[in-house]
Amino acid sequence: MPMKSYRAAINEAMAGEMRRDSSVIVMGEDVSGGTGAPGEDDAWGGPLGVTKGLHTEFGPTRVLDTPIAEGGFIGAAAGAAVTGMRPIVDLMFVDFLGVCFDAIYNQAGKFRYMFGGKAETPLVVRTMYGAGLRAASQHSQVLYSLFTHVPGVKVVVPSNPYDAKGLMIQSIRDNDPVVFFEHKAMYDEEADVPDEAYTVPFGEANVVREGEDVTIVAIGKMVHLANEAADNLANDGISCTVIDPRTVSPLDEETILEEVEATGRLVVVDESHPRCSMAADISSIVAQKAFKSLKAAIEKVTAPHCPVPFAPELEDLYIPKVEDVEAAVRRTMA
């Protein structure tokens, strides 16, 4: 199988679906870049190059550079989706959701239910999340739990290139609004990715490894941390299960509960804050539904309850680390 980057996997998924289905369109700020400028078209291909080549292949009626007007063009994407198109819109940094959230949670996210099941809104909102690039407080947040809170919105957080491609194809073919989270520090990560189209279903967690002592549920980029921690802990004879939910809404409760029932211990690793995050949410589900099988208090490994700081020394302290995961696992074993 060919090795491809996370970036290339997502790009390939979009290009393939655009070839297959003429109702798939792409909109966003500089998804081409250079429209109407004296120099090159497709000059950027997205802020970090994820849509590169789409404008060149599919032209300006299917790949639209937008003005900076997220409330406008994401609202328009919701309108286009409910009337027959399959728009993929780029919210760029998820931190920008404040200027356009309505289109996602009150419009697209409500149509199916509120209109008595008569509406389909196949909208994909692509967005970048996560700290580590020294991008400071308004360009580094995680925020997928905000969308997860809202019924009607599906939330996808791929942790590797293979899942990214399969989940993107599923997102485009899905008839509900999907917010697709791409960790901006993962674009250059490579893995085997098949050339042909395939889907990864929503609501099916990936059990990355199976162990006997502790279950670690980790999301997005945190899956790598969990794996590394599990490797290190194995040297000390502690064996961990690592679960990657892949989609946080719908969430594969069944797999998480089954694995926790087997080990009796849970650590949740989430790059978000401790309150009202996926870490808090998954902990509460397990506390409620697998209470009797728990041998230790649930541990959460999260960023602290503060905005993402700019100073590199502080940002490094802010982001969860492998050692934090190891320590949390050891606490459940103490």
């Binding site: 700020e29 500089d30 870049g33 250079g34 429209t35 109407g36 400028a37 004296p38 000059a43 950027w44 802020p47 550079d65 937008t66 003005p67 900076i68």
Partner: peptide, 12 residues
Amino acid sequence: GYAEATPSSYSV
């Protein structure tokens, strides 16, 4: 004249 790579002649 530009917002990122997009000229104001196109966007405004």
